[in-house]
Amino acid sequence: MILVLVEHDRGVLAPASFEALTFARAFDCEVHAITLGAPADELAPYLGAYGATAVHQAHHDLLVDYGPDASADALVSLVATLKPGALMATGTDRGNEVLAHVAARLDAPFVANVTGENLDASADRWELTRIRWGGSLHERATITADVRLLTVALHAVEPTPAPAPAVATPMPFTPTIDPSAAITIVRDRVKREVGQTLATASVVVGGGRGVGSAEGFEPLEALARELGGVVGCSRAVTNNGWRNHTDQVGQTGTRIGADVYLACGISGAIQHWVGASGAKCIIAINTDAAANMVTKADYAVIGDLHEIVPAITAAIRSRRGV
């Protein structure tokens, strides 16, 4: 049996959890889900659709909000009684953090960011593919353990409902969590204003070194506003102090999943490509027709972004009759 951690924020499901459930079904054995905290109880019906036949619902005062220690204690507590062949989560910040804490508690190996490719679970020692360098390099790795701990790399598996949906039987339980061991407790949490974030925006207008200055981003901002999108940037831009790191698209920044990414004056180093490649359509604007960002893009306009970006904004406005 495989146990899948389903992530949520006060009962709001993290959609990437469906990727982990889809991945778990590839192992051709029973799939159970686990949710942490009572606010997640209502998620059970959605999990059955993705093949979970049971959902273990951990209830505890220390699980109202996310905390890595309490979460890991709850998982370890269930793993001890259920003895699954594997415990899987999604390769989100939280998913990787919690499984690292579980691995540390069990002194067991933990393989982070596995892709769906070439799984071999036919022997005790599983062989898997995982990503390195944010996906620009793949590693074949083996894991030998009673309970294999792994996370599924974000967006590496297309979430697909089970061909035969199951009914996920709710199985509430109270995990053993030592309050004194739950040493990392969240003291304060603020949900950011509702609106577009870099990770979820449908249009991202990105700027790189070619933008030239902090002020140079104003035309990019104008275009993003026109399209209801947000502005992103490359690492060179944040290193120059032109924009805040929260705007950075890349391996050490945010991975975008936009319908359209307009990459303006960005050379397209691997570090940036890793964050940009999730966009469904990439349009590069660059003076250098041989730049990585251009050759890897779907479409390109060759030329100076300082002329082209305002021209696009103007063309949108004129087409709208503004």
């Binding site: 190996p109 933990f110 393989v111 062989e127 593919t129 390195r132 996906g135 620009s136 390099l137 793949h138 590693e139 074949r140 790795a141 083996t142 894991i143 030998t144 349009i283 027709a289 251009v294 050759t295 890897k296 893009a297 779907d298 479409y299 390109a300 306009v301 060759i302 030329g303 100076d304 002329e307 082209i308 305002p310 021209a311 696009i312 103007a314 063309a315």
Partner: peptide, 26 residues
């Protein structure tokens, strides 16, 4: 956990369409 091998992911084939040069391509 043991590393067996490192593999470069296959190079993506170019799908680039150049729309044009300069503001005329807007």
């Amino acid at each position: 956990q043991r590393m067996v091998q490192l593999v470069s992911p296959p190079e993506q084939e170019s799908r680039l369409v150049v729309l044009g040069a300069g503001p005329a391509a807007a």
